[in-house]
Design a protein around this nucleic acid. Structure first.
Length: 159
DNA sequence: CGGGTTTGACCCGCGC
DNA sequence: GCGCGGGTCAAACCCG
């Protein structure tokens, strides 16, 4: 039932399209990164060792805020100032293009990002952010930060 | 040599 | 209960 967030097509420069109704999503859930998954995990099962770590992320009802915005760019990877490490790539049935899964390279910062290219328009790339960064931007990007602020998204909220 | 990418395997939720 | 679709991990590999 995870409805895909409505996306707005700006189509001007590289990235300037943002999800319009994401404000409600942010206010809906309390932005708070509980812990990095796998902090304890002392027990080590036979085969499914990583299984325990997976279950560790039991956030119950706390769903992470996810912002999605489309970008019209030839390159899928948008340099938003953070360092991302790709941890997976899967092909979705709806789209012929594979979806890439990225994760922020930072201790305690479990922010995920998935990039998907539309099969209809190969020039359109959908970037979905999940979670918020709990650390300053490694490489400040004025352009990207402006977009975030314009859409009431603060990558570095005062906790 | 280290960090990041690649790729297959595995798991889980949901629909049928 | 099984199959499918989607998400994650981890070992291997590649590149600077």
């Amino acid at each position: 039932m995870e409805n895909q967030p409505m996306l707005l097509l700006g189509s001007r420069s590289c990235y300037n399209s943002m999800n319009g109704g994401l404000k409600s999503q942010i206010s809906n859930s309390n932005i708070k990164s509980s812990h990095q998954m796998g902090v304890e995990s002392s027990e080590n099962h036979n085969t499914s060792s990583y299984l325990s770590s997976l279950k560790k992320k039991a956030d119950k009802k706390i769903k992470k805020p996810r912002f999605a915005f489309q970008t019209r760019c030839q390159v899928d990877i948008l340099d938003d100032g953070y360092r991302w490490r790709k941890y997976g790539q899967k092909t979705v049935k709806n789209n012929n293009y594979p979806r890439s899964y990225y994760r922020c390279t930072h201790e305690g910062c479990n922010v995920k990002k998935q990039v998907q290219r539309l099969s209809k328009d190969e020039g359109v790339v959908v970037t979905t952010y999940e979670g918020m960064h709990t650390h300053p931007i490694d490489k400040p990007n004025d352009n990207f930060e402006q977009i975030l602020h314009q859409n009431h998204i603060f990558p570095n909220p005062p906790l």
